[in-house]
């Protein structure tokens, strides 16, 4: 560290040293910001686990909630039913609409469709809940039902599946298309035989992400799905669900009953499912990355 200017490199000024030091400090300090995000995340997971695990047992999963505690059987089945209904609906609509946008639509129509999807994704969940209440509970005279909840939830999930389907069909490599059409394949044949196998894994990731999001939603269901202490028996019966149980019990007193523990157990289950879905998505995405890399070679 001589104070003289290096004859070859010609830079040893204070300004120069400040510049290099600033770069070094920033490259060490800026990543520390991750602590501000990771610490709360780990704290959350730790506390949910700490509150849920001591009392989590097989009975929790196999009994219904009672007034003061009980198990999670009804909410678990309810969440599964709701997700099944909404995934089936949103999956069908999203995939077909995405295929149309990527394959058939004129650029104008396609960009309108994409805009619609993106904006629908930005609608607050509570507004979709209000919409579901009036459109599917009140005006249909169905009352609060499993099917009303499922449909409302599907509105929330459609944009995610729609967009991934659009992207997936749109990103089929050009030479694959040209090869197919060059051999005289019809559109239907192209879509079935060429585009679908390439696009499917990516669509699947969109579906799983949509499921993870639907699973964690509360507001669209509060006024549409109703509540039930036993598993729903049909499309027109009311149902409970995991997020709803947390909503109902989070402020329960700790000195009486076990509702709060039950709420934490529901939260724990949700986190486990969400992490599992994320892991699956990453695995699919990784395989897809490799396969696509091969296609582009």
């Amino acid at each position: 560290m001589t104070a003289t200017v290096d004859p070859v490199w010609g830079t040893d000024s204070p300004r120069w040293r400040r510049r290099v030091a600033a770069d070094r400090y920033v490259s060490y300090l800026l990543p520390l910001l991750f602590l501000a995000v990771l610490y709360p995340l780990l704290d959350l997971i730790y506390w949910i686990g700490a509150e849920a695990l001591p009392t989590l047992s097989w009975r929790t999963l196999t009994t219904n909630p009672s007034g003061f505690g009980g198990g999670l059987l009804a909410p678990i089945t309810g969440t599964l039913y709701l997700i099944a209904i909404s995934t089936a609906l949103a999956g069908t609509v999203g995939i077909v609409a995405g295929m149309y946008t990527a394959e058939f639509a004129s650029p104008r129509v396609a960009s309108l469709g994409r805009l619609g999807g993106n904006l629908l994704a930005g609608v607050p969940a509570i507004v979709i809940g209000y919409f579901g209440y009036f459109a599917l509970v009140l005006y249909t005279h169905w009352g609060m039902t499993l099917v009303a909840g499922g449909i409302t939830l599907s509105i929330f999930m459609i944009p995610y599946i729609y967009r991934t389907a659009d992207l997936a069909f749109g990103s089929v490599p050009a030479d694959q298309r040209e090869a197919a059409f060059g051999m005289g394949a019809s559109r239907g044949q192209y879509l079935r035989r060429v585009a679908w196998p390439i696009a499917f894994p990516r669509i699947l990731t969109g579906i799983f992400i949509a499921m993870a999001i639907g699973l964690g939603e509360t507001a669209p269901l509060l006024f549409t799905a109703g509540w039930n202490f036993v598993p729903a028996t049909g499309l027109s019966s009311q149902t409970s669900y995991l997020t709803g149980l947390i909503w109902l019990y989070y402020s329960a007193p700790t000195d009486f009953g076990t509702e709060l523990a039950l709420a934490f157990q529901a939260a724990f289950l949700l986190i486990v499912i969400v992490i599992a879905l994320n892991v699956i998505v990453q695995l699919i995405a990784e395989r897809y990355r490799r396969r696509l890399r091969g296609l582009f070679r």
Binding site: V8, W9, G10, T11, V20, D23
Partner: peptide, 18 residues
């Protein structure tokens, strides 16, 4: 100019300046 540009004490920033 006879100096190893990959030497540990030499910064790439300075190399690219020259």
């Amino acid at each position: 100019r006879g100096r190893d540009i990959y030497a540990p004490e030499v910064s790439p920033v300075v190399v690219r300046r020259r």
